[in-house]
Design a protein around this nucleic acid. Structure first.
Lengths: 318, 318
DNA sequence: CACACTTACGATATTCGTAAGGATT
DNA sequence: AATCCTTACGAATATCGTAAGTGTG
């Protein structure tokens, strides 16, 4: 018989090693949770399919044949490597070990994620999380290339190989000095701010694009254009102008001098999506992380990013 | 589920690796000689019993899940170590490889065995033969301790743990110089030789014991006692006396000066037995060697041990 | 006769292949 | 329409446990 056509079960091999150990059918059968007779025919079947007698036995004595001794070594190794593989698999399947790669907008990665990841690490200490804090476009690329299992990003239009589902909505807030006249207004809209000196982010940032789309075809009174929100915060604190940013970035502006007020212009919300590959399931670890994040997704109106929260331990991340 | 209770078949694991390789149920099923539907449920059963989804599949695409990729390594290793074990076992079972340990009387080991082992090695080049050429008592000990699988020796009374079955009978021969008057006799008996100066072997040799038992209570006219047959041969050739030895030892006396004539005294035969452990089967290699030797056992009346035969290559031996 | 392995046998469970179903290109 | 995986289902096969059989100390 061809080796590749041979069908062996782990049960048979385990029965073999059990009998080799006990040299006694009855006790070996007990160890395998089998009746003695079923165990007997199991051994016989094994011997038949291998074409070798593995045990010398009469009613009184059970001993390995020389070939049985030879096979015992191989059988033990096979069972050991199988056990290793199954334990490994089991640990991943139950989330005791694993890996999850997530790409996220820098605002989410810096403001909202650290606390979430800290809690996640508490619950799943064996799962390594790799974070890529990059802009939306790069997030997509991370997912497409497989470097990330999923992404939290704001691009809706992704290729057919990816799928996007809503994650959260992010309202926009005016940020200005507390002594600025606007800080006493009840209701704010984007056009109402269009006369103020405005600190912009770069043209390719999603924040800038949301703002310009919402007020189009008008424009804000831009007086400066920066790349980093923390620099924007410094400029606003210095009284050089005002700015408008999504709620999730407000932690950058967490200062006693500044205040943040919701801007109620229809269409001025940033939508964040969960983006992942369409035809490919998430690893168990990534599934756990995603479920965890979905449960703790930022609530609309919730202002995140107090210094206390941002100072939380960040868990394992790249 | 406990890992130790899990029953996996090699068929399942092979199906898994086949599908991982082909990423196509139909072709993987063919490789496993299964219908596509049976193959499908095989994979499903495997996934269920492992509790992990191993493949992402729709009607168009089949891909390993992250857990599937993880398991693929383990599964490959398991199959490889199983294949190794089975090949090893198969080679031993079919006699392509193996070992046989045999203990034999020095006379058999030196005279009859070399040619037999040479032929055996031709037919079973992969079987290593270990020979112990020791006296009968040591032969028994080799078998009892397991250092030899079986022995060819002349002791009949062995313990209950061993069994002895007849192997061959060995007639006794007078050896004297060709110019000795006895060499012209037609029929020879032991008593008829009792007057001649006789070259004895040591008291504990089986040859000496056979001779003394056959002529008891009379005695031969011993004039010398030696340990080695080759020394005996030298003495006889020098004309110091005559001797009587079993046929299988005659190769020691293969000289132009000497002649060997059968001694026809009832009871004067040496019986050689195959001795082996009772409750323990022989390794396949030992079985092959024993069967081979049984087929070629020395024939009664056959005079072995010409210089030509003794010069044959001896095959592999210790 | 007590113990320990084997055999007999009916019940249950598994596995197989054929054929129909459903989804995708 | 063609391809490819899944499901349905009856038949063949395998496995199990109970119980009887057999051989040994």
């Amino acid at each position: 018989m061809q080796i590749t056509d041979l069908n062996l079960s782990t049960r048979q091999v385990r029965a073999f090693t059990a009998l080799a150990e006990h040299r006694n059918f009855t006790r070996a059968a007990e160890q395998c949770h089998l009746s003695q007779s079923a165990f007997s025919s199991l051994i016989r079947t094994l011997e038949d399919s291998l074409g070798v007698r593995l045990f010398d036995r009469d009613t009184r004595r059970v001993e390995l044949t020389p070939e049985g001794r030879l096979f015992l070594g191989g059988a033990t190794r096979v069972l050991a490597s199988l056990r290793d593989a199954l334990e490994d698999l089991g640990e991943h399947a139950t989330g005791r070990r694993g890996r999850a790669g997530v790409a996220a907008l820098p605002s989410l990665a810096a403001g909202w994620m650290p606390g979430v990841l800290a809690a996640f690490h508490q619950e799943y200490p064996g799962i390594q999380v790799d974070v890529a804090d990059v802009l939306s476009e790069s997030c997509i690329e991370f997912v497409r290339s497989g470097r990330a299992d999923f992404a939290l990003a704001s691009m809706r239009s992704v290729g057919p190989d990816l799928q996007a589902e809503p994650f959260c909505r992010d309202g926009f807030y005016l940020v200005c000095r507390k002594d600025h006249p606007l800080s006493r207004r009840r209701r704010l809209t984007l056009p109402a701010l269009s006369g103020e000196p405005f600190i912009h982010l770069a043209q390719d940032s999603s924040v800038r694009q949301h703002i310009e789309a919402a007020i189009h075809p008008a424009k804000m009174n831009g007086m400066m254009e920066l790349d980093q929100l923390s620099t924007v915060a410094g400029m606003v604190r210095a009284g050089l102008g005002i700015t408008v940013v999504p709620a999730l970035t407000l932690f950058h502006f967490d200062s006693d001098d500044l205040t943040a007020l919701p801007v109620e212009t229809p269409g001025l919300t940033r939508e964040v999506f969960v983006i992942r590959r369409r035809d490919r399931s998430l690893s168990i670890g990534a599934q756990a992380l995603l479920a965890f994040m979905m449960q703790r997704r930022p609530q609309p109106g919730e202002k995140r990013g107090s210094r206390r929260a941002a100072a939380l331990p960040r868990g394992r991340s790249r």
